[in-house]
Amino acid sequence: MSSRPLPESLLQRTDLWVGSRLAAVAAESTGHAALDRLLPGGGWPLGALSEVLVPRPGVGEMQLILPLLARLSQAGRRVAFVAPPLIPYAPALLAAGVDLDLCWVAEPASAVDCVWAIEQMLRCPGIGAVAGWLASADERVQRRLQLAAEDNGSGGGAIGLLIRPPQARRQPSVAALRLAITASADGPIVEVLKARGGRVGQTARLAA
């Protein structure tokens, strides 16, 4: 079932968004080709917040974000883990291509400090991406972090990754992109829950 193609003259208009296409969003490839194809701009949106919902550590979130952290750090930008639930293991980070000189871990003692640290890092020029583990983040907090990612001085904006529990799915989100990961025997399955300028409900499987 296919509709009649639109006339070329309409397709070339920049103020017309065609629902079957992905909007042109400034983004940084996730490093997973199957996933990039589903995302507006072909990756993590720049200068914006993305949420990744995970039921527990180790279901695939590291596999999902490490290619991004590796590429950004190799481009000379800092990347950070804030409040990771387990130890980001340096030998594996190095093997994944992360420049350990530019990779930081912050371990705040409270949720307030955690939000503060993520926000401050997102605002810092030269930061590439901040992955923060936050159990709860109300709309106000999310907007603060979203603004911080947009504000980032170093051109293009920073990528804010909030790793959150699946319960967050019921909350409204200001994030530009929302993914959910589930583990499977053949590799983690990533579902697009929300994508500003893209389509939702599709899934991609990361290589096992």
Partner: peptide, 28 residues
């Protein structure tokens, strides 16, 4: 260089607020 300065001053503030051991780089 100025990015590095900005980061250094942020790192100082993070350590001041979260404690000296709360910000580190994974190493081998």
């Amino acid at each position: 260089h100025s990015d590095g300065e900005a980061w250094n001053s942020l790192a100082d503030r993070i350590r001041a607020r979260l404690g000296d051991g709360a910000l580190w780089r994974p190493g081998l």
